[in-house]
Design a protein around this nucleic acid. Structure first.
Lengths: 335, 335
DNA sequence: CTGAAAGCGCTTACAG
DNA sequence: CTGAAAGCGCTTACAG
């Protein structure tokens, strides 16, 4: 392991740590340290293979140049891409990212928040689980820099970066109706997350706006824990009423994936009669033979804005919480 | 932000920091601190909302309880799943993970290694890019705990966790031949990575073992940087000779995805004549109408073994480098 | 232009 | 059983 410290260099050179520190941090000019001294220090540092210990610096300055990222599950394509986008933007500011997955479990996210704070991350980017509101409130009170991505809480004024779930959902469902569909089923997450709720509201409003009745038997809710099984069950139940259904609308990519998988395996021909649409896309949707309508979230932008908002907070102590709402795009022209 | 320190508690209670530290670290019994004292400290700590500053602890103990993870690109499904597996296993040991993507660029991975080391991660898990061997050699010399995943270098004895690329590849190609295919094209990465090389070797050996000639015009190499364009070009060139081809074999999931996308868009019918197979799978392969043979890597195990190997190194200073080679599984029974 | 010294918040020999 | 003190490796007022 490395062990050359500032002190080692200063001793070698018979100068103070202060001087070496200034030089190593590029403050030589500012501190009016002579050119030759600067050169000498730099040369010696290189020769000895000096590398600053960021931990020590962080302890002293209170800045770790590390961001904490908490998502439901980094192995999910949406979050994986989000993580990458956040990583890239964080790098632009000289930051690294430490991450953790909550599995939509508030106990886990609570622990992650705690640990990351104690590791002195300069800010937290969180895709909060349902019951995380208590932690978020505390962060808000402590003025700890954080930003919520993908989901948020109506009760806490936060820095937030999300897509417009309601409008996006409305458009997709409205498009189905305009195409003549009248019995549109929805498979949704029941994790109590506002983004999922909004997608449901968009669905409902599209129905209403077109004079259609909301039929609760066409709305299926699925939990995170038993996602696969419950999605399959939901599909089964829906297919039992298949004469009365002409569209199945999935509220996110995972549900769409699981649902389609089940349909294709067990009852593929039903796809001739029933349209599929999804709020969210998964990678190869458009490689499949099944025509589908789906939204695509601007993940790059979500990540970029999230980091930018964190940085603003880190740089200036108090800023008014900002809400960034981005539009989603669609797989084909819709009205 | 938090600011309650050990000292604050010790002052409140009129005891020493030492005592408080022992109690907070659960060493009260061991240090024979009285029950009541222990209780008092714990109560006060809770009351004041004390949280240990891990940075300070790390600086003092030399252990940060953080692992550095460097992959080509965390947004790639393979690496995303690997990251998750590593996260889970690291958590078991009380560790967190800081990550970075190299984009197969050795300059980037070099920087990441440096930064993570200076942030004092206790170990590095690396999916090395082609020219990373120089960094790996240095880590080896410094006895810095690290493990290579997915790829390795024949020149440096390292802790390594990989799949058996050569055998896996052999089996897939051999299976095609047994099914009567004679003209098997391969689309491969030319990033100079040993895992990719091994997949090519497996391909070659399967041909040879079956008395078939290697035809270089059927082997297409693609770079990481222009992956999409070059894959499309490769497919185009292969399809020009389509009378002479009966299988296209992709050496990883990304190439398979891009290649299939292009084929489906531009020349779907060709799939009636040409079989597709892939070393690696992507999520929805088996939802597609196209029959495919593909391998599936034991990603969970890769991550688990990687962390376990790192932990062994962290716990005992010197261990003999170990190589863990895991088998891949296949989408259907093969001979 | 340069240095001595304090301090960030811990842990851990050492001493009693 | 408990405490005073050193030290991890930095940065930064303060002084000259």
């Amino acid at each position: 392991m490395k062990k050359v410290s500032l002190e080692d260099i200063s001793k070698e050179l018979g100068v103070s740590k202060t001087l070496v520190s200034f030089v190593m941090n590029g403050r030589a000019k500012e501190k009016r340290i002579s050119e030759e001294m600067t050169e000498k220090v730099l040369a010696k540092a290189k020769e000895m293979g000096y590398k600053a210990n960021y931990l020590a610096r962080a302890l002293r300055t209170g800045k770790s140049n590390t961001l904490g990222l908490i998502m439901a599950d980094i192995s999910n394509a949406f979050f994986a891409k989000l993580a990458r986008s956040i990583e890239n933007e964080a790098n632009e500011f000289g930051y690294n990212v430490i991450f953790g997955s909550s599995d939509e479990d508030s106990v886990k996210s609570g622990k992650l928040i705690e640990v990351f704070k104690n590791k002195k991350v300069d800010g937290l980017i969180i895709c909060p689980a349902m019951d995380d509101i208590k932690y978020i409130k505390r962060l808000q009170k402590e003025k700890y820099p954080y930003v919520l991505v993908d989901r948020y809480f109506a009760d806490v004024k936060s820095n937030v970066v999300v897509v417009n779930n309601q409008i996006g959902s409305y458009k997709i469902v409205n498009d189905q109706i305009k195409q003549g569909k009248k019995k549109i089923a929805m498979v949704n997450f029941n994790v109590g997350l506002i983004n999922m709720d909004d997608r449901f509201i968009g669905y409902k409003e599209a129905l209403e706006a077109n004079g259609l009745q909301l039929d609760q038997s066409l709305v299926k809710n699925v939990s995170f824990k038993d996602m696969e099984k419950e999605t399959e069950l939901a599909i089964e139940e829906l297919l039992e009423q298949q004469e009365t259904i002409d569209t199945i609308y999935f509220s996110n990519n995972q549900l769409a994936f699981l649902g389609l998988k089940y349909i294709i395996k067990n009852n593929k021909s039903v796809l001739d009669k029933i349209s599929i649409c999804s709020f969210d896309s998964f990678a190869v949707m458009d490689l499949m033979e099944i025509p589908m309508v789906y939204g695509t979230q601007p993940i790059q932008e979500l990540g970029k804005y999230a980091v930018d908002l964190i940085m603003k907070q880190i740089e200036s102590d108090t800023i008014e919480p900002q809400e960034v709402v981005l539009p989603i795009s669609y797989s084909k022209e819709m009205m």
